[in-house]
């Protein structure tokens, strides 16, 4: 696959996504500057973690007005793969590509640590290589990861299996104790209706290299890459 990693001023996991795709998965990957309007020839886009434009306002609120986002929306509407990680997820909700919003963590503190995610839907392009209910150990690092949506939106997400990951314990039990930030229904990641846009607060790119403590994030990228290869056949 040919990937583009968007660089906003203040993105700081852009290198991590670039390095993971390029070095670990041997994908063709390049950076897309926030002022670029020409995405060129790509199959997938990563909106990386960080503090786009400083995020002094609501996270992602300014990034959604950047020139590149118009192109990302166009790309997504045509069915292109878009993955928003952490700040990228926040940007996707602000841009209207995914519903809901990410509020401040309930403990009002930044949280960075390894957590467990239960795969809720293993028929998406992002998770089809996962077992049903598989538990992944992937870290979060955010101050605003508390997923919120009005009841009707939440119902719609749940009814259509668009909740892709939920915070759980190591055994896959989803409860209040395993919820790090107050997210409704322990939601850690969701996808759009068409199934080509994924937003998640945890950082799968941080758990792809065995040298730095775990490879549970690999299955997500592998799923996307093999799905794309299948479709290209």
């Amino acid at each position: 696959m040919r990937w583009g990693v968007v660089v906003f001023p203040g993105s700081n996991c852009d290198y991590d996504a670039f390095d993971t795709l390029g070095r670990i998965f041997e994908q063709e990957v390049r950076y897309i500057w926030h002022k670029d309007r020409d995405l060129k020839n790509i199959d997938g886009i990563i909106l990386p973690g960080g503090f786009s434009y400083g995020d002094y306002l609501r996270s992602g609120a300014i990034a959604r007005f950047s020139p590149v986002i118009e192109e990302v929306i166009r790309f997504a509407n045509k069915g292109g793969i878009v993955i928003g990680i952490c700040n990228g997820f926040q940007v996707l909700t602000e841009a209207g590509l995914l519903p809901g919003t990410l509020r401040e963590n309930v403990n009002l503190r930044f949280i960075c640590e390894d957590l467990y995610l239960r795969v809720e839907n293993n028929s998406t392009r992002f998770t089809h290589l996962c077992d049903e209910g598989q538990v992944l150990k992937i870290p979060v690092a955010h101050n605003e990861g508390n997923y919120f949506a009005p009841p009707n939106v939440l119902k719609e997400l749940e009814d259509h299996n668009r909740v892709v990951f939920r915070y759980s314990d190591r055994q896959g039990k989803v409860d209040e104790i395993s919820n790090p930030n107050g997210s409704l229904n322990n939601i850690a990641g969701i996808c759009n209706k068409a199934g080509n846009v994924l937003g998640m607060m945890p950082h799968p790119e941080r758990r792809c290299d065995p040298v730095i403590g775990g490879i549970d994030g690999q299955v997500i990228f592998k799923s996307v890459i093999t799905a794309a290869m299948e479709m290209a056949k």
């Binding site: 700081n12 290198y15 390095d19 973690g49 503190r109 930044f110 949280i111 960075c112 690092a141 730095i212």
Partner: peptide, 10 residues
């Protein structure tokens, strides 16, 4: 230390 991002840059 869980308030510090100690993993960024992988």
């Amino acid at each position: 230390f869980r308030q510090y991002d100690h993993m960024v840059r992988t």
